[in-house]
């Protein structure tokens, strides 16, 4: 049961991500991405990271992708006239390269990892993550905060009507 859900979700994730490659309408692409992200959140949950699953939905799907959609709506982009990748001539080389890269990654992963002895999923509680965040990684949290602030200021500056 558990495995079925996992592999189904994984298939949904990959298919949805793959759909971005072939759709014309940016809104549809964004929605496929949202689906992929939601499925990924479920994968996180199944892998035993409930906090990250919730954060994935809240931040990625709930905030970032809404921004994305918002922008597309404001620009009122209609389906692109661009030739779909599979119709245009130059899709073979990138696809081939990507395939090779994937295979190489697989070789890399399988070369590096011994299969674990016990394969039970341990759920890592939000509390543990929080303690790790505000314990050894406190400095990085601060840095992330500064990064966000910097991004905020940058966006405010860029979106002003009259720039310096």
């Amino acid at each position: 049961m558990y495995e079925i859900i996992f592999y189904l979700t994984a298939a949904v994730t990959v298919l949805a991500a793959g759909s971005i490659l072939i759709v014309r309408n940016p809104i549809h692409a964004a929605l496929y991405l949202v689906i992929a992200l939601l499925a990924l959140a479920l994968l996180f949950f199944l892998l035993g990271a409930p906090l990250l699953a919730a954060l994935q939905v809240m931040i990625y799907a709930g905030a970032i992708m809404v921004l994305f959609l918002f922008l597309i709506m404001v620009m009122n982009l209609r389906p692109t006239q661009e030739q779909l990748p599979f119709l245009s001539a130059g899709w073979k080389v990138p696809a081939f390269l990507a395939l090779i890269l994937w295979l190489e990654l697989l070789v890399l992963f399988f070369g590096l990892l011994p299969e674990p002895a016990d394969e039970t999923i341990t759920v890592i509680e939000p509390k543990v993550v929080g303690e790790s965040l505000f314990g050894p990684y406190l400095l990085v949290v601060e840095a992330a905060a500064i990064l966000l602030l910097a991004a905020l200021i940058a966006v405010l500056y860029l979106s002003r009507k009259k720039r310096l």
Binding site: P94, L97, A98, I100, L101, E104, V107, L108
Partner: peptide
Amino acid sequence: LNRYALMICAGAVFLLGYWL
């Protein structure tokens, strides 16, 4: 942009392949 991405990808493929 796409061409640059392609080049980066090619570089990644090459380096990873070489390393492996």
